[in-house]
Design a binder for these strands. Structure first.
Length: 511
RNA sequence: GGUCCGUUCGUCUAGGGGUUAGGACACCAGAUUUUCAUUCUGGUAACACGGGUUCGAUUCCCGUACGGACUACCA
């Protein structure tokens, strides 16, 4: 196998879609697996669609998920520049080469003329009007105009484009790594514009030229490119680069979770999950779309989730680190069908990865939230809280959001629990327990429990009957982690204070 | 409309001419837990349809249906 060189080639027209991250990932996995090279190339040949900040966003997003670029925008390399706009001068010679070989031609048609042609063909009943081997005979181009007129037009700088001269009858075949042989008849391809009138190449030319010059071995990209892949094959052939043509792999698309259609930002917003890796603020509209990072997804979980959207190892293993993915990944095991997006699975992965972390690391998440809240807390205490909370957390923010009661005494109490469990027995036990705790030098989980059992035994009341009442007085809620540990963490004085407050407040409420 | 691609539980998927069609997520139930969560056990649930080929097809072939992509001087 030749040296593996793959590229991720987004166009900087906005934030990187999550599907794009997956495409980048598959490229990256293949590169790493074969000690190859991962290239980032920016395809910014459409100057009208340039969005400021998009390129930086793409780089940051890739860095965040752990996809390292070996060569390309931001890092440089032997084939620099990697931004197509900066490569502009390089493309014309190849277009000219095609013209000289009779595989391309100049076209001077105006937008109006093109429009008129399409209209005419539509009226004639042609299903999809094309600029092709038949119609080009009626258009204003170098295949129809006299040579000197063409020369003159070029010299007088009349705007022109260069089009590929697609043959009338030819079967174009392409061996896709995922789909096998795909055959397309040349009559289905029109004379695609190769060079635009602004002197920029179109995607088709730029992509082929750059892949060739950059010695790309595999083109892994979304399925939306499949229809134009035969055109690219044709270009390789006409440019004389057939032997260097990369292998193609067209990935199935990411679809909406419900119903059908391509996954779009709109769906994500509606269904409440991110579509972008990082939060993105649209510079035009000012609209903000929250990212996976900001929503609390861990990059390694997102990667694992994304890797499984369309690919699977064929075993029952589901948790894969990037290193394991690199070892196990294979293009052959990528599926053909579009993949509906299910955020539940992403959450599950996140939970798995979160739990695998040490209490100390988890404590950092809590500490970070606390910093925002302006609450001081020792690392030791945070680690203790993290330890009791980790089984119920899916996101880093859960430690704070579900554990606020560690720092704030409850002001209100869960009504359901109060209605069901707050009774005379509970009040009796709590009062006695409060006094018993006050008599203790300090409180820990074991002592808290044994003391409680002593109190209930003396009063002849089952511990289980009043435990919910104790919990609600300490945390305000009917559910949560081990109560005894909670009491140990908040400490003796706080326990007494909270029970007292509950005794006063809830009694008043019931009476 | 045309061209191309696709179709196994609700979702991601394994599998492959003869299987009780396997796993995971989600969901439901039971057990454990003083609660919730966790964990464990169990459960519901799928080969789009119609023709072939074949002793036999979910698997191979052809249609149909459905879905998707593409159909720009956008990528």
């Amino acid at each position: 196998m030749r040296e593996v060189r793959v590229r991720f080639a987004p166009s900087p027209t906005g934030a990187l879609h999550i599907g794009g991250v997956r495409t980048a990932l598959y490229n990256y996995l293949l590169a790493r697996q074969h000690n190859g090279t991962m290239i980032l190339r920016v395809e910014d040949t459409d100057q009208n669609r340039f969005v400021p900040g998009a390129e930086e966003y793409i780089q940051k997003a890739l860095a965040w998920v752990g996809i390292k670029i070996d060569e390309g925008v931001g890092v440089g390399g032997p084939h620099a520049p990697y931004r197509q706009s900066e490569r502009k001068p390089m493309y014309m010679q190849y277009a000219k080469q095609l013209i000289d070989a009779g595989h391309a031609y100049y076209a001077f048609d105006t937008e109006q003329e093109l429009e008129a042609m399409r209209e005419r063909l539509k009226l004639a009943g042609v299903p999809s009007p094309q600029y092709n081997s038949i119609t080009r005979a009626q258009m204003r181009n170098s295949t129809t105009l006299p040579e000197d007129e063409v020369k003159e037009l070029l010299e007088t700088k009349v705007p022109y484009v260069i089009r590929l001269k697609v043959p009338r009858k030819e079967e174009i075949r392409l061996n896709d790594m995922i789909r096998g042989w795909v055959m397309v008849h040349s009559s289905q391809i029109d004379d695609k514009v190769l060079m635009k009138s602004d002197g920029m190449p179109t995607y088709h030319l730029a992509n082929v030229v750059d892949d060739y010059l950059m010695k790309i071995s595999h083109v892994i990209r979304g399925e939306e490119w499949l229809p134009s892949a035969p055109l690219h094959v044709l270009l390789y052939k006409y440019l004389g680069w057939e032997d260097a043509m990369p292998q193609f792999a067209h990935l199935p698309l990411l679809l909406k979770p419900d119903g059908n259609g391509k996954l779009s930002k709109r769906d994500a917003d509606q269904l409440g999950f991110p579509i972008f890796p990082l939060t993105w603020k649209d510079p035009e509209s000012g609209e903000v779309a929250t990212g996976y990072k900001e929503s609390g997804y861990l990059p390694e979980a997102l990667i694992n989730f994304l890797a499984f959207l369309g690919w699977n190892p064929g075993t029952t293993q589901e948790i894969f680190s990037m290193e394991e993915l690199i070892k196990t990944f294979s293009v052959e095991r990528i599926g053909k069908a579009g993949t509906k997006f299910d955020i539940h699975k992403a959450q599950w992965f996140n939970q798995q990865y979160l739990r695998a972390k040490s209490d100390e690391v988890l404590a950092e998440y809590l500490l970070e939230s606390l910093k925002h809240e302006g609450i001081d807390c020792s690392k030791e205490k945070a680690a203790k809280i993290a330890a009791v909370m980790k089984e119920r957390a899916t996101f880093p923010k859960d430690f704070w959001e579900q554990g606020k009661f560690f720092f704030h005494a409850p002001v209100t109490f869960d009504e359901n629990v109060v209605n069901k469990k707050w009774n005379d027995d509970a009040v009796k036990v709590l009062s006695a327990y409060k006094d018993a705790v006050a008599a203790m030098p300090s409180i820990d989980a074991v002592a808290a429990k044994s003391t409680l059992e002593q109190v209930t035994a003396t009063l002849g009341i089952g511990t289980g009957k009043i435990l919910q009442a104790l919990r609600v007085s300490i945390t305000g809620a009917g559910a949560g982690p081990d109560l005894m540990m909670i009491m140990e963490i908040i400490g003796k004085d706080e326990v007494i204070r909270r029970i007292e407050y509950a005794l006063q407040t809830i009694k008043v409420k019931v009476a």
